[in-house]
Nucleic acid binder design. Structure first.
Lengths: 159, 159
DNA sequence: CACAGTAGACAACCAGGTTGTCGAACGCCA
DNA sequence: TGGCGTTCGACAACCTGGTTGTCTACTGTG
């Protein structure tokens, strides 16, 4: 075999970082400073229906307390609003603000632009094949983004 | 395009996690509990010549204080030793113990086994092609494993 | 031989997770 | 109707793993 398992892991991590860091930088340049991937992910979940803290925690595979902290940041930044749920007085209903929706759109656009750049570099068909194989390998192992950061924080062998 | 940029990022992250989490679990099962990727990475750097805290910090793209904390753990576990450097009294020279070397070997073996399983699943040639394309895309963007965990901690869109 | 720079120790701090506890509200069921 | 287990969100304490800043000892160079 030409490559080691450690190299493979490192390649995957580097690819991910390369996409995500570029997105973070782009968004910062567009005026959304301190906007982190986890914020984008949380807002996406909110937009997809996780409109209260407990549910958001479940979707992010994180405790509801951790979710509440993220929500506090999003509220502070004006990306979401929180108001009483008329049907369940225990809940606070979360909603994206127009500003929040626009961050989400821009994030997606930047990520998409990066993907298109990759497609130009190796060819659209090659990129599609890469995605196809990866998704076969990963299978149903859905990633839990917020999850214990200490799992998968490094790689092994960085050169 | 069939897939979004967010999906691509998620695939890469999931692939990485899948490899690394399996390795961590395997090592734990083999008696190396609480052995984390960052430990493996640090030991690898030490073995590769980063035999003092400051240098280790540089290789891991982390402050020397952070490196010192990792070293403290490795010392405590008996994976490395630290003794005076005869040529520079400021330095403490780090060395892997036989135990440390064996963890490293086992970690590499487990990772390699995972890679071979992947090769069986999609074919060795396909896997090699995937690695080749990824490495073209990633290019010289060397990953900094220990680095700010908040970069690249999430993906975007988890289903 | 002075002095700028480096190694490592120590302390304070911060971010972002965790668990545990609590009061209020809900929903089911006798 | 009422009781009771469950859920929501808040709050507090704590842990981990980074950070910066400061200090002393030592090095090596002009």
């Amino acid at each position: 075999m030409s490559r080691s398992g450690a190299d493979l892991a490192l390649l995957l991590l580097s690819g991910y970082r390369s996409l995500v860091d570029a997105t973070t930088d782009e968004l910062a340049a567009q005026g959304f400073a301190d906007f982190r991937p986890v914020h984008e992910f949380a807002m996406r979940a909110i937009a997809a229906g996780a409109d209260n803290a407990s549910e958001l925690g479940r979707r992010l595979s994180v405790s509801k307390q951790a979710a509440a902290k993220v929500i506090a940041v999003l509220l502070d930044r004006g990306y979401v609003t929180r108001d009483a749920d008329p049907r369940d007085a225990r809940r606070k209903r979360l909603q994206l603000t127009p500003l929040g929706a626009s961050v989400l759109r821009q994030g997606e656009a930047v990520l998409q632009a990066r993907r298109e750049e990759w497609a130009r570099r190796i060819g659209a068909a090659e990129l599609a094949a890469l995605e196809e194989r990866l998704s076969v390998l990963v299978g149903d192992a859905v990633v839990r983004p917020g999850a214990p950061a200490w799992r998968g924080d490094d790689p092994a062998e960085a050169r």
